[in-house]
Amino acid sequence: MNRPSPAGLLVALAFGIVFVVEGRTVLGMLGFELPLSVYFPVAGLLLVAMFVGLLLLPKTNSKQVAGT
């Protein structure tokens, strides 16, 4: 897997934030209600870690330009 383009990273970030926000709702539905002060630091750190991981990936070959 190669590193997504800046556009791909932006789209991924937007979806990441959505999943973090809605993740708490889904957990609540399933009966795990976490306090804000616990959930958001943990989820935020996970998001940052994922992002750093994406940035560590090798850059896309010059061939594939479009999309992610």
Binding site: S5, P6, A7, S62, V65, A66
Partner: peptide, 8 residues
């Protein structure tokens, strides 16, 4: 990403 940004 060389396509897109400012190209026609």
């Amino acid at each position: 990403m060389d396509s897109g940004t400012e190209s026609a």
